[in-house]
Each structure stands twice: as C-alpha cells, then as structure tokens.
Design a protein around this nucleic acid. Structure first.
Lengths: 195, 195
DNA sequence: ATTTTGTTTGACTAATTTGTCAGACAAAGA
DNA sequence: TCTTTGTCTGACAAATTAGTCAAACAAAAT
C-alpha cells in the first residue's frame, strides 16, 4: 500500500511548470514535458491519467501558491504603504523566475474556463478592500472604487511583464534595458498609486 | 488571369478574427474556422497554403490595423490630454468588438516570436515620446521615463480586459457589473496619468 | 457552344499527439 | 529466496489535425 515516492511525480510537475512558466512554451505537448523531465511519456500518463489532469493540477497548484503568497502579505501587520511595496516586491520576485506564469493563467482561463474554489479565504479580499477604502478616506490614495485600486496595482505590475516581447521591439530595447525599465517601475508604481 | 473574388478569402480571414479575437478560442483548428465560415477546410488551404500562413496573415493585418488606428490619434493635432482621452476611447471601442485580441497577440508572440516590419512609421513613436517629455516639463503629467508613461497607459487600459474572466470571479461580479467597472475606468485612467 | 481558368469540394495521405496495456524492473515483505 | 507491489517502459492503437490531389463546378473568354 505504501507509496514508494521516487520523486518522479513531483519532477514531472516541476518540469511542466518550468516549461510553461519559465520558457513560455504554452502549447507544450506531454512528450515535450516528458523529454525535458528525462522520463517516458508513458510515465506522465501513469501519474496523471491524461494531459488535462496534469495541466489542471499545475494550474491549480500555481494559482493556489500565488494566492497564498499574496494573502500572506495582505494579512500582514505592515502599514498600508509598506504592504503595497512588499506586495510589489513579492510579485516581481515570482515573475523573475516564472515570467510567463500570468500569460499561461490567462490563456488557460480564456480557453478552458475557470473553476475556482474560493470557499477558503472568504474574507481576505473583503478585508483588504476595506483597508483600501480606509486609506482613501485618509486621503492617502486617490479616491476610487477599491476594486479599481487593486486592478491598477496589478495592471501596473503585470502588464509590462506580459507584453515584454512586444514592447521590447516597440521600444527597441534589449533584454537588459527592459529589465532595467521594469525595475525602475517598482518605485514609480507606488508614486502613482499614492498621493 | 483576373481574380474572380468571391469573397471567400476575406470571409475566412474575418471568421478567423472573430473566433480568435471575439470568441477567445485561441487554439482553434483550421476545421473550426472553416466550419464557422461555412466552407470546407480544403478551401482554407487553397487560399492560405497552411495554417501558419493564415495565422500570420491574420496576426499581421490586425497588428497593422491597430497600429494605424493608434497612429492616427497620436499624429492628430489634438491637445495632449484630449489626445490621450481619444486614445483610450479608440482602444476601448476596439476591445468591445475584439475582447481577446490582446490575449491572442501576446500568446502568439510568446510562442512564435515576432517579426515586425517597423521600417514604416519610423518616427511616430519617437515624436510621441518627445511630446510626452514636453508635457512632463510643463508638469502636466508626473515626471518619469516617457516609455513608462506609455506602458502605464496601456497597462491601465488593457490589463483589466485581458484578465476579465479572472477578476470577474475574484471580485464576484457578473458581466454587466464588470463592464460598468471598466467604463468607470476611462475617466479614472486620465485622472491617474495627469497631475 | 466550347474552351479556358479560377473556385470549390470529397476522398485520401501524412503527421502529430494522446491514450492503453502487457510486461519488465526493482524495492519491500514474507 | 520467492512473492508481492509499486514504478517504469516499449510497442501498439486511437484520435486529432494538417496537407494534397484529382476532379467537379461555374463564371468568363474565345
């Protein structure tokens, strides 16, 4: 009965994440993943019965991880502005190792819909929206729907990463220059969001 | 020698655009497109030798259209702020009919790279960046790298559209409510960008 | 009317990718 | 040692998708 954990299952998942999120190969086949993991494709089917199951599992876990990482910051006792700065930092760190994660998530949701178990963490978001509201009343940030404040935060952080290959060409920048531009944004985003 | 234009070629392209950009079926097959257009798949191969050619043609044309629409606004004689407002309006109109266009472009660039003929319109962007710079010196907008101003503009416009299915669920909004939220953003984006 | 030429299709082939299954292999238990 | 059981593989079958080709069709030209 005991599982003999050889690490293969985790290896396959990690490899899949690397291919999807780090290498941006959004349409990788199971063979691609098996090859990259150094196992046979049959083994992928042994652990995950089908391609869909593997994809969904990778998707769900990543979604969950991301949620946890952010909740942790949101629920911390830091003062609001520090909290946002920390939030940006966490987001950028994650995207440094997995630059295509957002892309993958968005594409996946667009094509295969989205089933999300939001029964857990029921009021984390609500509490944070309320905290934002409070800051607005203190005139610390521009008055708007708190949801829009959050959308703005994510937009300013994520969009330049999502569109990196596009804007690299539009602006005629090399990788290093674009990375520099991105890093300058961390401070700028805070400046924009706060009065 | 004369082409007997039956409209089939254009029909196929338009249908492809509809499926990709309006319905968000990013991984549609040539069969899907043929079916939706009411023609046989063979005909798709008659006009466009391969799937890749069709995809690229749709991609290039859309990219070009979008570029033109935006250049038109950028090169207009409107005062700067009006120009930005008009820009947002144009962008929103386009995304109302083709909500998934950005998604498609990004995914396409991520997986298949990007060859862009930027020999045309060589200085449109440069001129606009300069105009932004001038506005910064007049203190009309926050001081930053003009490129970042542009990135912010696009981010604030596009991101909430890209992630619509995701944030609909996160915020627990229905379609109508989300659309309302989006529309409120038009004015807000201007408020954020300008002093 | 007949030929020509561009358009469209059905049937076929090829390529790619996924899924299954019997059996090999190796670690643990008897 | 022998058996059991979980892990892994190679060979095969199935499904999906893309591409080709000869021939049917229809509009124009002769």
């Amino acid at each position: 009965m005991a599982i003999r954990d050889t690490g293969a299952e985790q290896l396959i998942k990690d490899t899949a994440k690397r291919i999807f999120f780090a290498e941006g190969k959004l349409n990788a086949t199971t063979q691609d993943i098996a090859d990259a993991a150094g196992v046979t494709r049959t083994l992928v089917n042994y652990y995950f019965r089908s391609k869909d199951v593997l994809f969904r599992q990778v998707f769900d876990e990543s979604m969950h991880d991301m949620g946890n990482r952010m909740d942790e910051v949101i629920q911390s006792t830091l003062p609001f502005k520090k909290k946002i700065e920390r939030f940006i930092e966490v987001f950028y760190t994650q995207l440094a190792t997995y630059p295509y994660q957002e892309s993958f998530m968005i594409a996946e949701i667009n094509s295969n819909g989205f089933s999300f178990q939001k029964k857990d963490r029921p009021n984390v978001l609500a509490a944070f929206l309320k905290e934002i509201q409070t800051e607005m009343e203190k005139d610390a940030v521009k008055k708007m729907k708190p949801m829009n404040f959050l959308l703005n935060l994510f937009a300013l952080m994520a969009y330049p990463l999502l569109t990196r290959p596009l804007f690299k060409i539009i602006f005629e920048l090399d990788d290093l220059q674009y990375t520099k531009l991105l890093n300058e944004r961390k401070k700028m985003i805070v400046d924009i969001l706060f009065n």
